[in-house]
Every structure is written in C-alpha cells, then in structure tokens.
Nucleic acid binder design. Structure first.
Lengths: 141, 141
DNA sequence: ATGTTATAGTTAGCACGCTAAATACATGTT
DNA sequence: AACATGTATTTAGCGTGCTAACTATAACAT
C-alpha cells in the first residue's frame, strides 16, 4: 500500500514537471528562448565572465551540452565568448546587451509559472511542500 | 515571502525531477532502453494493438515524437507495427516477445527509483505529499 | 627538456520532444 | 462523381541532453 503511494508520487512528479516544462517552453517562445537557455542566462545575470565548466556544474549537465547551448546562444546574439588570457584552454562567457535585457521578462514568466503551479496550494501547505521537496533534493545529491 | 517559497518549490521540482530522470536514464541503460521508451512500453503492457494517436494521448506528446520513438523501438525489436485493416491511415502497435520480457525488469527499476525518491519521507508525509502533488497535477491539466 | 597526466572544450552521433509542413486516406457535401 | 474537410502519420529541421572519442593546453615529474 505504501508502495502504491510511492508509485503515485513518482508518476505525479513526472507529470507535473513535464507539463510545467511544456507550458514554460511555450511561454518562453515569445522571448525567442528555449527552455534551459533561461537557466544558463540566469547564471550569467548573477555574474558573467564565468567558464563553461562552471556553467556545467551550475546547470548540472555535461560539457557537450554547454558547448551546444553556448553556441546557439552566441549565434542568436545573447552572449559572446572570449578566451581566458591566463589559460588558453578556457572560454569565458559574457552577456551581450540583448542577453541582459531578457532578465526581467524571464523573471516575470518564471513567477507566472510559480503561481500556476502553486495556485491551489495554501501558504501553510507550501511550507510543508517546500520542506518535503528540499528533503527529496538532499536525498538525491 | 510567499513568493520566495513558491520560487524554491518550482526550482526544487525542476532539480528533483531532472536528477531523477538522469538517474533513471542511467539505470535503464542496462536494459538498452532510453528514458521515455519505458512509458510507451508500459502502455503496451496494459494492452497492445493500440494506435499511435492513442499513444500520443497517453504519453502527452506530439505525433512526430511517437513516430520517432516507435521507429526506434521497432528497429531495436521491442515492438512491431501493423496497418489497421479497416482504416488504412492508422498503424497499430504490438509488443514482440523481447518487448514483453522487459515488463518485470522495468517495474523493478521503477520501484527502485520510488524508493530512492521517498527514502527520507515518512509514510504520513507521503500521504500529504501525494495529496499536494495530485492537486498540482489537477491544476495543470 | 621530455614524457606523463590532468583539465577545458569540441566533435560525432544518438534519443527525446517540439513545430511546421507534407502525405495519405476517410468522410461528408454538393 | 468531384471537391472540401478532417484525421493519422510522416518528414524536415531544430534544441536539449547524453556518451564516447578527440584536440589543445597546462601542470607535474623524471
């Protein structure tokens, strides 16, 4: 019986998360962004000039993924790359003005998503939910 | 402040779900399956001979996605396709023996995942969590 | 100085999942 | 019978994300 409960949660998690992704993807299309690119930019909005390895670590993805994302984002004029002067192996990633401009609109879309997700969840419940999510997160990493 | 809480949950959801996906993907590799293919097969284990449109609806994805997945699964010998005799437009999808054999191993992997996800969540908490997840799910569809 | 090992990033190739546009067949209308 | 509309699937092309294998540079050891 507990097993059944577990099963439902795993499945729910998948459904909710993939539906959120679909929704968000559609929402970002107006900004000419693909889902995932916003997270890379979000890291740069905190501070740019970081290396691709740092992006990998932050995005929890593999180097080839970052290579490709960075290539596309550069092609679309959101970022540019510069070789590090000390270490010729590393590439440092910087925001263009076009990339900087997206911060507010993306933040708005993200907040819209939050609201949609938690629409039917009361404040007290949100606290519990956050606790449980955080615990699951810690469990996995 | 509520806003901050919402933000955390949305972000946690993403992290947990993508880490689960990564884990599961690795786990399925031993069975020569990619993540996503298991869900298509799972629908066929309930009953095969269904159409691609029915698969679309069940998997909540678009027709081209199903076309490609079905193509790969057929190439790898897990399923086969047969044109419907009444309606020459529709393709009906059937399991091969190789496809049928995967039911138990995949079920096992899935249960492993559940356990990993809910490891630190107590039974009472699981009930609450399920309730909240279900409510979010209903919210989105 | 030379050879080994480690690190940063790229390339090739694959699967998922999408949109836009095409094809093929079915059904309804005139 | 001919035409329009609708439905099921496919093709082309793109982005995310992966693994395996490669290149280029750096750092360390003999």
């Amino acid at each position: 019986m507990n097993d059944k409960v577990g099963c439902d949660i795993r499945e729910s998690l998948d459904k909710v998360s993939s539906q959120m992704r679909r929704d968000y993807s559609e929402s970002l299309r107006e900004l000419n962004l693909h889902v995932g690119q916003d997270k890379l930019l979000a890291r740069l909005w905190i501070g740019d000039g970081i290396t691709q390895m740092q992006l990998c670590e932050h995005l929890k993805c593999e180097p080839p993924t970052v290579t490709n994302m960075v290539k596309t984002l550069e092609l679309n004029g959101f970022i540019y790359r510069k070789r590090d002067e000390q270490d010729a192996r590393v590439m440092r990633i910087y925001l263009t003005d076009k990339g900087k401009e997206l911060e507010k609109p993306v933040d708005f879309k993200w907040k819209q998503q939050q609201e949609k997700l938690l629409h039917s969840i009361l404040p007290e419940e949100r606290l519990i939910l956050r606790e449980l999510m955080k615990r699951m997160e810690r469990n996995l990493f």
